[in-house]
């Protein structure tokens, strides 16, 4: 961990509880850099998170106000805090199960309201903290504890969901696209309206082990082929796009 991050972290709680190869630590660092890049005051920023591995990115690691809520509700908690004190910069960081399954209703309504709330979804396509169950983001065919023969339900494309609900700023990157991720997080933080960043994060422990992606390196190789920068994506034919996911700044309006 780079020393430049130290002033914004509660060093006494480190090391993080994240598993070997987990991408959430990369997002943790990217978030701190983006907050500083955006020039935000750490005394006036509130990080809200729900339940799950990703909820532990801000709480307790960030040296700022943090609100670790019930499962699925961080956006609703954050909405209340923002309305009560509009001088706060409210940033929600949580996982795909938290934000898209149990909290899906709050996500779409927050996007619809387009309040200046930033939501960062660490999407690892699985319920990690409970041992690796299928999520509404698990790609069809991928194995989890509760889809041992392969997931049968189509997954959400979270960026398209937020776009459709009216969110003003939408971006997606894998945590391996680190500089692009930091840039999009920075823009999201400065955006005047609802901003959503999906950070695709590897989970070798619970997702990788059942899908023959056992290490961070394996995730890196796989994601490089699947997650295509928007500039390249735009030039692909319909058949070439099959099974791939566009990344980059997708919506800014």
């Amino acid at each position: 961990m780079s020393r430049e991050l130290y002033p914004n972290l509660r060093l006494e709680v480190f090391p993080t509880p994240f598993c070997a190869g987990c991408g959430h630590g990369i997002l943790l660092g990217a978030m701190v850099r983006a907050v500083n890049e955006a020039g935000l005051d750490w005394d006036r920023i509130l990080f809200v998170s729900g339940i799950g591995c990703a909820a532990w990115i801000p709480s307790p690691h960030f040296a700022a106000d943090t609100l670790h809520t019930t499962h699925g509700r961080p956006i609703a908690f954050g909405t209340g805090a923002l309305l009560a004190n509009p001088e706060l910069k409210v940033v929600v960081i949580s996982g795909d199960g938290d934000l898209a399954a149990i909290g899906g209703n709050h996500l779409i309504h927050a996007a619809r309201r387009n309040l200046p709330l930033t939501v960062v979804c660490a999407n690892n396509h699985v319920y990690g903290m409970t041992g690796g169950q299928v999520a509404p983001t698990t790609p069809i065919g991928d194995c989890t504890q509760t889809s041992p023969w392969g997931a049968e339900e189509p997954p959400f494309d979270l960026c398209r969901l937020v776009d459709g609900a009216g969110g003003g700023y939408v971006a997606r990157h894998t945590v391996f696209q680190i500089w692009q991720l930091i840039r999009s997080l920075t823009r999201a933080l400065k955006f005047d309206g609802f901003s959503f960043v999906e950070a695709v994060s590897p989970c070798p422990t619970h997702y990788g082990k059942l899908n023959e992606i056992p290490t961070l390196g394996d995730f890196h190789r796989r994601m490089r082929g699947l997650y295509i920068d928007r500039k390249r994506w735009d030039k692909l034919s319909e058949s070439e796009r099959e099974g791939k996911v566009p990344t980059g700044e997708l919506i800014s309006r």
């Binding site: 509130l46 809200v48 609100l67 809520t69 019930t70 509700r73 609703a76 908690f77 954050g78 909405t79 209340g80 805090a81 923002l82 309305l83 009560a84 004190n85 706060l88 209703n105 709050h106 309504h109």
Partner: peptide, 12 residues
């Protein structure tokens, strides 16, 4: 959502 927003607001 209501009760959650209230708690966030109370802490703000």
């Amino acid at each position: 959502g209501s009760i959650s927003a209230m708690i966030g607001a109370a802490w703000a």
